[in-house]
Amino acid sequence: PEAADLRALARHLYEAYLKYFPLTKAKARAILSGKTGDNAPFVIHDMKSLMEGEQFINCRQIPILEHQQQTSALTLGHGGITAAHPGSEYGIMGMTSIGDQGPTDAVELRFFQSCQSRSAEAVREVTEFAKSIPGFINLDLNDQVTLLKYGVIEVLIIMMSPLMNKDGTLISYGQIFMTREFLKSLRKPFCQMMEPKFEFSVKFNTLELDDSDMALFLAVIILSGDRPGLLNVKPIEQLQETVLHSLELQLKLSHPDSLQLFAKLLQKMTDLRQIVTDHVHLIQLLKKTEVDMCLHPLLQEIMKDLY
């Protein structure tokens, strides 16, 4: 009976994951491996293709998913790439300005603004997913805020991994592939934003988790009982323990030949915290050095006094 309960929990979280996250790993890997036929993504590899990409995205039909229709007001209504689908699929760049005036910079500016908009929307998706974890909404409301504040960027980085390979990342719901070299060619410190995420993702992807594994792992991250300032740790740890049991069973069943996968996955949580710390410090540096820098209010809330 206990194993049956753990399997039911895994199914529930997988269904919530499919409901709230628009681009699954299965879809992303199909796009990246060229299995989507004529619908190959547009490749952005330099400033010229970045501008062409903006045109490209404006001319294409936007594949709004059924569950997204009710929230489409959040993602539509801005110009450029933002109008189609804001920026990086699970963008976490959190910036609005990338330089001086000029036609090229205007495109860059819109791109980075769109990253922020998409990040805010992704936070909403993660919040909805968190609320679907059994017991989460019964936790102290302050603790729910704390768990999201500290967990959401870690979740976004995990969600970005399936969209990445060693050469670049999918953005705009898989319609565009932006190369790693192009992102590295941006001026400092913008060029430093994504490289640590690529390094992490390439290693993380070797674990070959599927979407149902990912759903459980994301819930484990959210239910971390050691976040600073939590008022009532015990019920959070109890919830996490149940999800951990479910994840361990899930991995044994779906990856029987992958030794120590559960332990390897838990170790990734340590790496994640360092990536988030470095990311937040980079954003704080940007706020000081970029005159026009304006953080989205939701991202400000999350990053203020984070690390």
Binding site: Q70, T71, A73, L74, S117, A120, E121, V123, R124, T127, E128, K131, I137, L141, N142, Q144, V145, T146, L148, K149, G229, H296, P297, L298, E301, I302, K304
Partner: peptide
Amino acid sequence: LKEKHKILHQLLQNSTSPVDL
């Protein structure tokens, strides 16, 4: 804490209805 995180708080309290982010 929830006072300092009004938007997060709002996201947690609301259902799936659109929130003006």
